[in-house]
Amino acid sequence: MANSLVPVVLLAAGTLAITSMARADTLVPYTVVGDGIPQSLTGRPGDAARGRALVLDRTSTCILCHSGPFPNVKFQGDLAPNLAGVGSRWSASQLRLRLVDASRFNPATIMPSFYRVDGLVHVGQNWRDKPILSAEQIEDIVAYLATLRD
């Protein structure tokens, strides 16, 4: 199922812009344009070096599912595409939306929505009403992924 990569329906909407219905108190508002979020969530560019460290940190969850161009890192997952070259396949805007809410690209995806707090069920007390990653962390990761070009 991991291979059903369908950049779907929404993308066809072209000019459609939706301001997120995110709860304003927890998440900074963002605007989806086409199939991406063109503006940085923090208003600043992220830091690619910090982004790399975050991607490799198990608590960010990325390499539980993904492998990537990290030859020295043990125990990478194979539930999801290798991250090598994602910066060539997707723009920063697209990468940002995928991290914020991957279900916009594939409604049946197993990739979590990292910047979403609504529509979740039975969330553990320690994690309730918090996104998996902060806006700063998303920007750092986007900056890093954008450097993964082939």
Partner: peptide
């Protein structure tokens, strides 16, 4: 079959 938790995954996933 129910997706749950902050990671929004079901046992079945």
């Amino acid at each position: 079959m129910q997706r749950q938790g902050q990671l929004n995954l079901a046992c079945a996933n």
